[in-house]
Design a protein around this nucleic acid. Structure first.
Length: 272
DNA sequence: ATGGTTGAGCGTCAA
């Protein structure tokens, strides 16, 4: 008998401070109604994490990995989490950029990864900019991590990957070729990571050459009018789940909120 | 070519 499948909706959002944006988080939860919420840039050390918040928002199961001032990731879940997996110490920095869990589902366990890839600073030259070198090293390590697993299945990867990989993931491919997030060395590194066994779940529904952005800089007077966006936030599924994808959405309206993050939530629904 | 804004937390650094 075929295993029972259920719909699973996964959302990812770079919240740019969890403590500052708790009301906006509640609005995201109400708007996307996801089973899973992956957050990045929580900017809260674990000992200061608001433990009552996830259950109050309807997520009794959660994990977080945070530090002072920077970075930090969290996974909120309405579904029981079997285990939290061991995270590698990415680039030896212990800097709170990854969480992985296994979800307990009727169709069998499902592995979920939440990543916050280093932004990489301003200068796209690893010999001159240590932050860019770190970003490239992180992308290479991430690829190796999934290569080492061999052929994997029933895996979802979400997060702020800080790379806009395709030509129409940025407002101007030509003008951003030398801008960190869209340089060839980064887009190739991201493609190599994805090629370890993932399908881009959002582009599955919105193929090129349609423009698709999830981030707009704070430094624009009118983000919607100038629309100089980039697609930095991603949801990937292991290739076996490509046929299980149901829909995607990008909550663009969240960029207009009074206390907006510069990133907006990305949502993918699939049958698992 | 440059500057533009935001957040953490009090210096500036990171994005």
């Amino acid at each position: 008998m075929a295993p029972r499948r259920r719909r699973l909706r996964v959302a990812t959002w770079n919240i740019n401070s969890l403590r500052l944006r708790q009301r906006e988080l509640a609005a995201v939860v109400e708007a996307v109604e996801s089973d899973i919420l992956c957050l990045q840039e929580t900017k809260v050390p674990d000992e200061l994490f608001p433990e009552l918040l996830p259950p109050a928002l309807g997520f009794p199961h959660f994990y977080r990995r945070g530090m002072k001032s920077y970075n930090g990731v969290a996974i909120f879940s309405r579904i029981p989490i079997e285990t939290m997996q061991e995270s590698p110490d990415w680039c030896g920095k212990r800097d709170c950029r990854h969480l992985a869990v296994v979800l307990d589902l009727p169709g069998g366990p499902l592995e979920l990864h939440n990543f916050y890839v280093p932004a990489g600073g301003d200068v796209p030259d690893p010999s001159k900019n240590e932050k860019f070198a770190h970003k490239l090293a992180f992308l290479a390590e991430a690829r190796k991590y999934f290569v080492a697993r061999g052929k994997f299945t029933r895996t979802v990867l979400a997060g702020d990957l800080n790379v806009a990989p395709l030509e129409n993931d940025v407002w101007s491919h030509r003008q951003l070729l030398d801008v960190v997030s869209h340089t060839p060395v980064e887009t190739e590194a991201l493609a190599a990571w994805q090629a370890t066994g993932f399908t881009d779940a959002v582009r599955h529904f919105v193929p090129e050459p349609q423009k698709l952005f999830t981030w707009w800089s704070y430094r624009n007077r009118d983000w919607r009018a100038s629309d100089r966006g980039r697609r930095l936030d991603h949801v990937w599924v292991s290739n076996d789940l490509a046929g299980a994808l149901i829909r995607q959405s990008v909550l663009k309206d969240a960029r207009d909120w009074k206390l907006a993050s510069d990133h907006v939530p990305v949502v993918v629904e699939l049958r698992v």
